[in-house]
Amino acid sequence: MSLLIKELWDLRWRGTILLFLTLLTGYFVLSNYEWFKTVADIAQIEQGLKQAPFLNQLFDMETLNQQLLELFNNIDFYIWSQWFGKNLYQLILLAIIILTFPLFARETEQNTNYFLLSNRTRKQIFLSKILASFFSIFLIIAAGSILPVIIALFNEFNFSLEQALMYGLQLSISSLFLYSVVVFFSIIFNDVIKPVIASVIVFVALGLMGKISGMLYLNIYRYMTGVDIIFTSSIQTTAMIVIFILALFILMGSWYIFKNKDF
């Protein structure tokens, strides 16, 4: 068993459960569009919109209702809003934390790092851990992104493979950034609890920053939901390049700390 295989072996249960959970949730959400339409009370939503004075001042309510109905009957909108824009990215957030927080911290906490450090170089240890964990996350991202295309084959709707791939790429890069943050915490802390707490704080803070006017670009979740892809039919190239560079920067910082850390 090589170092990389051992890392994958370590992740086997967590990775399999998260992959299974993603596929199961995806199947439930994507296969039940018709059922979802029957349980959603459109008349009540229309009534609610009419009674919102703020919306009445801004929009022509008849047009708004018309558009809402069109969206409601649009499977693409349903997939983007209910799967990519809600369930999938939240599952990926969960996967990033669960698959990454113990990566280095558990070895330090349980003193098993002495076995690794005395038999392999720090570079080999770092790379095998990074490759195994991000590969697992990427596998879940790939499965979740491509799932609508696969489910469409067995149902009476179509979903663009191109859009699924664009979303998968954008989600992968955004996830790499959050992943690099958790890796950083897993290296600097010597127990497994602190990386979880610190990661959750950063994840929440990134969401809150996006609420501040003018700082929307800092809201990583905007890219993870793929909202820009729906409206522009392209990925946010500049943002993705910046996020990718930031992720690499954090990973390189993490490597520097790991390389020089006393155990």
Partner: peptide, 16 residues
Amino acid sequence: LQAKISYMPENKNLYH
């Protein structure tokens, strides 16, 4: 050095 040195640490924890 890794092929030339064998090390037994003070803390002998392994993967539980």
